[in-house]
Write a protein that binds this DNA or RNA. Sequence first.
DNA 1: GCGCTCATGTATCGTGGCGATACATCGCGG
DNA 2: CCGCGATGTATCGCCACGATACATGAGCGC
Lengths: 180, 180
Amino acid sequence: MLEIAVLGLLNESPMHGYELRKRLSSLLGTFRAFSYGSLYPTLRRLSEAGWISEEPALDAASGARSRRGKRVYRLTADGKEHFAELLSDVGPDAFDDEGFGARLAFFAQTRSDIRLQILEGRRRRVEEQRDGMRTSIGRTGSRLDRYTRELQQHGLESKDREVRWLTELIEHETTQKEEP
Amino acid sequence: MLEIAVLGLLNESPMHGYELRKRLSSLLGTFRAFSYGSLYPTLRRLSEAGWISEEPALDAASGARSRRGKRVYRLTADGKEHFAELLSDVGPDAFDDEGFGARLAFFAQTRSDIRLQILEGRRRRVEEQRDGMRTSIGRTGSRLDRYTRELQQHGLESKDREVRWLTELIEHETTQKEEP
DNA sequence: GCGCTCATGTATCGTGGCGATACATCGCGG
DNA sequence: CCGCGATGTATCGCCACGATACATGAGCGC
């Protein structure tokens, strides 16, 4: 979700749309492309909802309003509150690819027990996907050509790796918790 | 791309939309979700373009037109030709996630030299993504929190695995070619 | 034969992301 | 001082997705 990622970045510091997009790509580029065609409409929505404010940028030296049409987006008090709620809301959205990616990116600001819930929910989700693929591969069996099997096999192994990765994160999370 | 996948499946045998969707999900579910909200509009487009035909289903036993609104989609001669062109068209689209997935799924019907071009192009693409991520991780360095680094690291390793996988496929392809 | 439920089957709608594109300004090297 | 790449805002068309509605098929208990 663009919304949570934008709020999270603006929670760290106010920013222009341009920089926002760069940060988004480097932060979550694994999951999504992030073009301006989705960023600016999102900023508009968030602004209308009152979560962020949109001010003309000031020149660093003179303090005068910069001649360019630059705009600085800043999280409002309501926005901070809303973001905190989003971070602790462990709904089904938190377990799909994008929702999980966005949450993980701001884990440092997330309560430890929520972190664990999200990691475990995500693992369950990926395990389900993996098992679904496994039985699907088993059913269609060897009727498929080599390349299709190869594709499915690679997908299956990726899911398997992700489950193991999540398990490591969960273990780290639980051992850290007991001895801070 | 839905288009190439639909044409490819209909090239194997005529089908209803419902079955089409099931086959699509099991074939390419790794890449996309495939809801009816995209499938039926695509079928409409393909039909208007003349690549597929849309006939009322016949009852298997009586041969009578089935009372249900069932429709059978069938590849036309033009459609077969178009599909063959799509399979041998090695444009940039063939190297992104979806385009590559769709091509690989029908590799059995693809000329061997084209197969090699697609695999190598895809590998180059993924290598570029991986290198981009690597330098991005190097630049932002250790300023990021543990979870973000973990996320990026996992993404990087996935790309690395994909490159190795593609290399295996390429090797298999080239050795097979020399001794048929 | 009755009704129950699940799989089969077609179809549309709202939301919203993506890629392309346009256009303006800043900063810096030649 | 000029050109070019980086910075910066913004919109448009296409189309995928998830939700939803609705109808018929087959199988099963009773």
